[in-house]
Amino acid sequence: MTQQKQATSMANARPLALPANWPRRAAFTALALYAIYASSTLDFTWERIVRGLPQGAHFLARMWPPNVEPFKLDLMWQGLLESIKIAILATAFGVLLALPLGLLAARNLMPGWVSWAARGVTGLLRSFNSLIVAILFVKAVGFGALAGILALIVGTLGFVSKLFAEAIEEVDLAQVEAVRSTGASFANVLIMGVLPQVMARFAGFTAYQLDSNLRNSTMVGIVGGGGIGSALYTAYQRFDYDFVFTILLAVIAIVMVSELVSVQIRRLFQ
């Protein structure tokens, strides 16, 4: 082999320092092209936004000042209390049902077919947004808080049982085995070996879910599931934008309070 040939072959052997990633470039280009195509079909243009702005300003202007008539405040308060009840009931029942379902879905404690079946159920429960589930329940059981509660139970169950199963799958099995080696029954192994390891996280999920349910409970009312959402929807329909603003402020307040509450719940189970 000549010296020159050797040099070229060595140069060839080294990969490029910064090679072009063609598949990624193609993906970005495709995304950009699709975005342009999609906006052209949906009238998603700057011009359209500019035309809409005065309308938005008008809407905001009509919101101020918030409506604080005693009658309206009473209406808001009723709705708010109902939303809180919906959220707490849905969280309580959802979490209670999520405990066994999450346990069944945990692959390290259950035989394969059980955990896969349970995973299928949780997946199904999570596949629809609460709003869609709420519409189904409003059709099934009629207008009112019951439909809202049931819809949020479904959402809670799907979400919390998945998180709970994952938490159980991460437990330290050495601790579980130590409990098992005392001759404890399966139930006792769960109670003293598994649950203590996941309780704190479970409380965290519950607190998070309560927070999320409070938010969602203000929304299920829009499709007839009870709570402050009903009042909000009615106010929109009647162009009572000042009252809409009052309700929005109340929702913000309740979400902030729930944040504080969930911090306390987590601390309790630390």
Partner: peptide
């Protein structure tokens, strides 16, 4: 199995339980 006690490597106590609860774990059988 409950007639056979076992002391484990790396202790294997249930970390989030109290000492008393860990001892009582020995009675779970």
């Amino acid at each position: 199995r409950r007639r056979i006690g076992m002391v484990h490597q790396e202790y294997s106590l249930v970390e989030r339980l109290s000492v008393m609860e860990n001892l009582l774990t020995g009675r779970l059988g």
